[in-house]
Structures are given as C-alpha cells and as structure tokens.
Simulated scan of single mutants.
Amino acid sequence: MGANTVTRAALIGGGFMADVHAHALRANAIDIVGIASSSAARARQAADRLGIDRAYDDVAALLDDDRVDVVHVLTPNASHAPYALAALAADKHVVREKPLATNVRDAQAVVAEAKSRGRVAAVPFVYRFHPMVRHARARIMSGDVGIVYSVQGAYLQDWLLNPDDDNWRVDDAAGGASRAFADIGPHVCDLLEFVTGDRISRLVTLTRTVHPMRRDRAVHTEDLVGMLAQLRSGATVNLLVSQVAAGRKNALSLEIHGALESLRFDQERPEELWIGRRTGSMHHLRNPDELTGDAARLSRLPAGHALGYQDAFTAFVADVYASIARGSVVDGLPVFADGLRAAQLTAAVLDSARSMSWVDVPAVTDSPLEDS
C-alpha cells in the first residue's frame, strides 16, 4: 500500500448515515466531491441537503470520476458487496457501512479483492473510538484486570417495538437473513473482542421474531437474540441484542469481569468507565491528563466537554484517511477483515438458532486481533 496524500471522497447513499459521514469528513477537512443515490433525483435531494456540489446520475458515473479517491458506501445491506467490489475495481479506497456482505462467501470475496488491490478498506465499528473504550483495552492489556473470567454485554433499542414499526431492514431481500443481530450485534461483539484482545470461539443462541407481521409485510428476520458464548481463553460470555426493548434507544453496554477488577462501558454514558474492585470501586471520568496512548490521542476535548457518537465517528474517519496518507493501517482501525468477522458471527448465530446447538466460530485471517 503506497502512501497517498490526495484524499477526496464521494458518497453512495443519501440516508441518515450520509449526514454522519459528511460531518465527519468535513471535520477532518476532507473534500466531498459528490454523491450518488438510488436515482439521480434522490442524489440531487441529498446533495442539496448536505451542501455537496455534485449529484451523480448513477454509481457508475461516480466511480468513473478520477477526482474521487475514497468511496463511502452507505446503501442498504444487499448492495454493500457489489458496490464495494466495483469501487475496488475502480482502484478506490473504500469505507463501507456494515455489514460487509449479507453472507460469508461474499464477505470473503470483498476482503480478498481489497487485499489484492492494496487499498485501505474500513468498516465503521466506531465504538472503538471512544477514549474510555481505549482506556479499558489498555487496562486489560497491561494486566490491571487480570485473567478475564466472564463478559456480559447488550445492545438494546426500541425503534421496532410496535407491530406498525417498519423499515427496509425488515425486508430480508434488502437487509439479509439476519436483522437485529446483523444490524447491531456485530458492534457489541467487535467491542468485546477489541477490548479483551480475545475471540469468540463457540456460541449457542436463541432468536425470536416478536412481530411476524409488520403492517402488511411478513417478517422473516429476528427482533432479538440471546447468546451464550465462550472465548478462546475460556471466558464465559452472555449477550443480549434487541430492537424491541422498550425505552432503550441505543443502549450498548459491555462489562468485563477479571481476577483483579471489572470494567463497564456504557455507550450512552461514554465519558466514564466503571472500574469495579472488591474494595474501592469507582467511576473514572474521561480526563486527557490522566489518560495515555490512544485514549489520550482520541480525547480531542478537555475534561468536562462531552465527546459522543459523532466524535467517535469523526475519529474513525481521521484514522481512515491517516492510513491512506501514510500507506499503512493505523493500529485499531477496523478493516474489512473485521467486517468478515461480523459476517462469520452472524452466520454462526443463525446456524445455532436453527439447530439449537453449539456452533464453532472460525478464525479470521489478516486481522490484527488474530495475532494478539
């Protein structure tokens, strides 16, 4: 991967995530050349809303534009793999919303293509970029936590609580065979594996579709997933993922129990890390003067000035473009191999739910965590 100081971006997809990506790009002084969407008219609407000069008639026109160095793919799930492959074939770097693909085979093909092209190819598992997540990871890597015995985590939302709540993600043709887990489950699993430096080796799951009909649509994807798993180290994992948890908006939490102390991170309270000890437990509030390494690097505001989701996303984009500029991937950047990992976990979750049995999860190659 050669260094590249020219970094101009274009977006494919004009929904909510286009706003998030556009804000992060501008915060990093990255030029947004243009945007394509499902039609020329929708692209124009998105361009007007986001203040982007050019609306492409279609994706082919975007990929043919030599001014575009990096393509951000922000479309429904079923189109992720084809657009990523097309962008890589056009010799672009790629930022792709998860899932990498709706099945493992397509995810493997995308990973292989990115590797063969030598392009930076990243997936926004952006919760890695909260400073207190990096602080938790550092405490585990330094031995402060001791041997990890167990992990408890959850990702809870309520936006699909009622039977008349609907979205394109509910349609398995657009969203894939898994919904609740594929949409938000990979975030908590990625956070778990990133913070602990360990991998889920096997799992058993239960899934439930609470509403078999939404409006006039038959539903074939799950509303919630319960998982029991084991890490390679032997630690026990208990996870709950739900899009029908009343009152929960974006409640991603992770609690790790070690021989010496426990750690808890709550995405809705990202400025703090709970450190539990047999005596003297505490809430450690983010303070750059007390942090080191990546936790300090990502603390872009002084203590008491809250950093949130958009700040984490902006930090992710900064590391993507830093990786392109220097010609090597910044440590901790989630890449396509991490997206493949999510596809493998999703497949294992569905296999286990169908068979009602334990399923082994294979290892991922070309991911830094495999060397940990």
Rank of each mutant, 00 (worst) to 15 (best):
Ala246Asn: 08
Tyr321Phe: 15
Gly226Ile: 01
Glu271Phe: 05
Val244Ala: 06
Ala318His: 02
Gly276Trp: 02
Thr292Arg: 10
Leu252Tyr: 10
Gly226Ala: 12
Ala245Thr: 07
Arg286Gly: 04
Ala295Trp: 05
Ala312His: 00
Pro288Asp: 12
Glu268Trp: 03
Thr292Ala: 08
Arg232Thr: 11
Glu272Tyr: 09
Leu228Gln: 13
Leu254Cys: 02
Leu254Lys: 00
Gln267Ser: 07
Ala315Cys: 03
Thr314Ser: 04
Thr314His: 03
Asp289Cys: 04
Thr279Pro: 12
Arg297Glu: 08
Thr292Leu: 10
Asp289Glu: 06
Gln267Val: 05
Ser242Val: 05
Gly276Ser: 09
Arg300Met: 11
Gln243Met: 14
Met282Asn: 15
Ile256Tyr: 01
Ala245Pro: 09
Gly258Met: 02
Ser299Phe: 04
Arg269Asp: 04
Lys249Ala: 14
Ser242Cys: 02
Asp289Ala: 03
Asn238Glu: 14
Leu252Ala: 14
Ala318Lys: 03
Phe265Ile: 14
Leu260Glu: 13
Leu298Tyr: 09
Ser323Ile: 04
Ala259Lys: 07
Gly276Leu: 12
Ala235Phe: 09
His257Asp: 07
Asn238Cys: 09
Ala303Leu: 02
Arg300Phe: 08
Ser281Cys: 07
Asp266Ile: 01
Ala303Asn: 08
Leu240Thr: 12
Gly226Pro: 07
Lys249Leu: 10
Ser281Arg: 14
Thr314Phe: 02
Val317Ala: 02
Arg232Met: 15
His283Cys: 10
Phe265Cys: 10
Thr279Leu: 15
Arg297Trp: 08
Ser242Ala: 03
Ser299Arg: 01
Asp294Met: 07
His283Gln: 11
Arg278Ser: 09
Asn250Trp: 15
Ala259Pro: 09
Ala306Leu: 13
Asn238Pro: 08
His283Leu: 03
Met282Gln: 15
Arg264His: 13
Gly308Trp: 04
Ala245Glu: 15
Val320Asp: 00
Gly234Ile: 09
Tyr309His: 12
Gln267Ala: 11
Pro288Ala: 01
Gly308Met: 07
Val244Leu: 08
Tyr309Leu: 09
Ile275His: 08
Leu252Gln: 13
Ala259Arg: 10
Leu239Asn: 10
Glu290Cys: 00
Arg278Phe: 12
Asp289Trp: 09
Glu255Gly: 14
Gly234His: 11
Leu252Arg: 06
Glu261His: 06
Ala229Phe: 05
Leu260Trp: 06
Ser262Val: 05
Thr292Met: 12
His283Thr: 11
Pro270Val: 07
Ile256Pro: 03
Arg277Leu: 13
Met282Ala: 15
Leu307Thr: 02
Lys249Asn: 13
Pro270Glu: 02
Gly247Val: 12
Glu261Gln: 10
Thr236Tyr: 12
Thr292Ile: 11
Glu272Phe: 15
Asp319Gly: 00
Asp289Ile: 03
Ser242Asn: 09
Glu271Tyr: 01
Leu240Gln: 05
Arg277Gln: 14
Ala296Phe: 06
Asn250Leu: 13
Leu254Ile: 02
Gln267Gly: 06
Ser233Met: 14
Glu255Ile: 13
Ile256Cys: 11
Ser323Trp: 07
Gly258Leu: 01
Arg232Gln: 13
Val241Arg: 03
Phe313His: 00
Ser299Ile: 06
Ser233Leu: 15
Ile275Trp: 08
Gly234Phe: 14
Gln267Trp: 06
Leu298Val: 06
Asp294Gly: 02
Leu285Thr: 11
Val225Met: 04
Gly276Glu: 12
